[in-house]
Amino acid sequence: MMLLEVERLSLRFGGLEVIRDLSFAVPAGTIASFIGPNGAGKTSLFNLITGFYRPTAGEIRFAGERITGLPPSAVARRGLARTFQNIRLFKTLSALENVLSALHPRTRSGVFAALFRTPGMRREEAWAREEARRALAFVGLQDVADRSAGTLPYGHRRLLEIARAIALRPKLLLLDEPAAGLNPAEKAALADLIRRIRDELEIGVILIEHDMRLVANVSEHVVALSYGEKIAEGPPADVLRHPKVVEAYLGEEAVG
């Protein structure tokens, strides 16, 4: 079964075509990667899939349901979680409170429950905190639960964002450059974590990544983009050696 299907998707900002007639599909339970030089439209594609951008044309289906045009919160509730390229944590709140945000869709208590501290509300609150701690423990951050997110070291902030996303219990997790700024040891741990997310939590993963060794190491499926168009798709070994992909990256290196 295909978990995510993208069909003839286009996105325009005025005269600029960011995504052009893009189609691909990712099966359930896969670790996939989007690669491509800077400006290829990878992050825009994430924003389209998660509802932050509205496509100019085309369709996105998730678990068989059409999600094109749904607002971000509705997309998230259907089981699509994401992280952000530049880490978007709630900086002044504690690590635990950050993760608690993802428990929101799976809890119910409203204003009246809060005012009267109903037994149901207390039970739910205790359960949510436990879930959040479990997610923190999964990425190895159980010891910093009470520290405010803004004071955590960079590597921990990346992990906290992942913990927050998996606490949503999504079917698919989109990671935007999760390895950016990490050292080799942290990158190896990240590759491990990504595999554990898929194997133990049964969450599919799509990452945007520039580190080709990480891409080759963890992903089973790769989609290569250049100037908003798909230039190759398939197993990493094939895509990374595809002449158009090599050309796109060489072109970038020759310029940059």
Binding site: P72, S73, A81, F84, R88, L93, E97, S101, H104, L168
Partner: peptide, 17 residues
């Protein structure tokens, strides 16, 4: 608080701002 701190991140967690 989530919405006040970062509306987009809150929405990405399924909270309707």
């Amino acid at each position: 608080k989530y919405i006040r701190e970062d509306e987009d991140a809150a929405a990405a967690m399924g909270i309707d701002p």
